[in-house]
Design a protein around this nucleic acid. Structure first.
Lengths: 341, 341
DNA sequence: CTGAAAGCGCTTACAG
DNA sequence: CTGAAAGCGCTTACAG
């Protein structure tokens, strides 16, 4: 019993010291062995591993973070959880990062750049191991915070050609254009665009919509209905009614998100409009329930799970000091044609 | 320039030392002043505060956690984010905890007790400041982990009379019974119950359903359709069709969750059934879109935001060393009668 | 009410 | 390839 020191504050925890003693090596060697640092004799590594198992040692993240100036947390900043899209992204991220020993911390920005900046300030004080953010649209201060922290960062959902930026996403603009071309291919000319939230990705899809219609020589700005409100089923219904009051001659509607489209479909039904005969309706993202609507909703299946998985994997490489093969991964999507168009 | 020590590893961070020097007090006093510990001269507190502002000091969470054996993280364990219910709870929790200086960490258990146990093991190693969990249904090992950690813990969504347990929720059983009584009051006798997931709260609502029907002398077990699958709009549609094949004489259906009910409503429409004349449909939780359905869905508005807010507040008290006025808060709910019943 | 010393459990340099 | 010493930035006891 050597509790020689009077001022002991031991927490009863099994420490690296205990492991080292058990394995008959120095604490430094034990530390190196556990972190898989190369340059440790294989035999010692094995002895340390065995000691860990015997003692049930769990490293102390706080101590590690303090000593190494880097923790195991990974803040993941998303705009909003009520958009099912981001729930899927988070799930995928978690499935990759957690088993690798990292703690993803979900931060919700509510589509507000100021709020994001504040979250970053708080999270970066924790010396996170890495960082996952949504898109490229943020305050200059936020950008500087990230850069100055030196924390590896991967951007999700969008892609860019800018050098030195890591990202995994898909072309929102292309996807928007492709869906619009599908509507054109059905013979529609007066194709409306209804959107809410008006975040950058929404505006990129709007851009794709415009591009496709201009190419077909039938772009009409008065068929765009953009609302800054939060996207929802109820809002979709409301906006469709509003649009039809202004432009009863609308032939097809591209809703920026499936929740809006579902609401639009229900509103059309209430108004007694036959879909797709009198009005074609398309959504975006292929959210839950879209395949159950009456009629089932045409939409774009976006690779959100893959965005999460690939983004997390890229971050894992960066955190491990490796350089990803590709700094910018551009994923595919799919126009899912159902009976509403 | 006194970089006397050769082995400096300074991170360039502003430390408590710097603050203390600037305020002309000892680091201990600065520490106490910042943590609001009583017994520090008001004048010194002010000097320290001023120094913090001048220097832009941000406390290091890792160092604090290491020294105090307690961090600022608060794991929040919920079953599943695809259930919009828990997204609302998390939002509310975040809104209370984050401004108070804590970091909520979202953990998803996927309704799996083993997975929850594993998450607890990992999160508790981080010395969290507090813990928020869903319900009371967990492994014995998980229960022991929580108790042994000494971390303050509040249980969400359900309530219990057990002593020494902190919880905020509402009576799922009563709510289930109340909704059933509403259906009875509409003159229905053959009232079915359709549920998925079969988690504890679902089963409590089933119990309420049974209780109300037994009281009315019309409980019929063959009108219960329970599926272990994941709750979804598509499943609701499928289960309704299945039920009607077995029991075409069903007069009303109580769906355990609104997503199922929405699917049921869509299926009824596809089958050409008039709601509520030929079949009454009710849901639970009043999720997004339920008020937009055709016809709008009768459901129970559950106090999920309040659960999050009150649960987080109670935890805040516990983490601050106070004893909440009430260890178990039982909130209200509301049967929202719309046109589907 | 205030402070000098020691310690929390790890890792980073520096040697050898 | 391995290790003794020092340090990361705080807080906990112990004194006064």
């Amino acid at each position: 019993m050597d509790s020689s020191s009077r001022k002991r504050r031991s927490s009863g925890r099994v420490t690296l010291q205990d492991v080292a003693r058990e394995a008959q090596v120095s604490p430094i060697t034990a530390s190196r062995a556990l972190r898989g640092e190369r340059g440790v004799a294989p035999e010692l590594v094995q002895r340390v591993r065995a000691a860990v198992d015997r003692l049930g040692y769990v490293p102390d993240p706080a101590a590690r973070a303090l000593a190494s100036q880097r923790g195991t947390q990974v803040p993941v900043l998303v705009p909003m959880l009520s958009n099912a899209l981001f729930v899927d992204v988070l799930e995928a991220v978690h499935r990759v990062l957690f088993p690798a020993g990292y703690q993803p911390m979900i931060g919700v920005t509510h589509y507000d750049a100021q709020e994001e900046e504040q979250l970053l300030r708080s999270y970066l004080a924790h010396r996170p191991a890495g960082l996952l953010v949504t898109g490229f649209d943020r305050t200059e201060a936020a950008r500087r915070l990230i850069a100055a922290s030196g924390v590896p960062c991967v951007h999700l959902m969008e892609t860019t050609e800018a050098p030195g930026v890591y990202c995994v996403g898909f072309s929102q603009t292309e996807a928007g254009a492709d869906l619009t071309r599908h509507l054109l291919s059905r013979g529609h000319r007066r194709i409306a665009f209804i959107a809410a939230q008006l975040d950058p990705r929404t505006m990129q899809r709007a851009e794709g919509y415009r591009r496709a219609l201009r190419q077909a020589q039938c772009y009409d700005p008065s068929l765009e209905l953009l609302s800054p409100q939060r996207s929802s089923i109820a809002l979709g219904a409301q906006l469709l009614e509003q649009l039809l009051r202004l432009r009863p001659d609308t032939q097809a509607v591209f809703f920026n998100n499936d929740d809006l489209a579902q609401g639009g479909l229900l509103a059309a039904q209430r108004l007694g409009l036959k879909v797709p005969q009198q009005l074609a309706v398309a959504g975006f993202n292929d959210l839950a329930g879209s395949d159950q609507m009456l009629p089932p909703l045409t939409t774009v299946r976006t690779p959100r799970c893959e965005v999460g998985t690939e983004g997390a994997r890229m971050l894992l490489q960066l955190m491990g000091g490796q350089r990803p093969a590709q700094p910018c991964v551009r994923l595919g999507y799919e126009v899912v044609v159902r009976q509403s168009t």
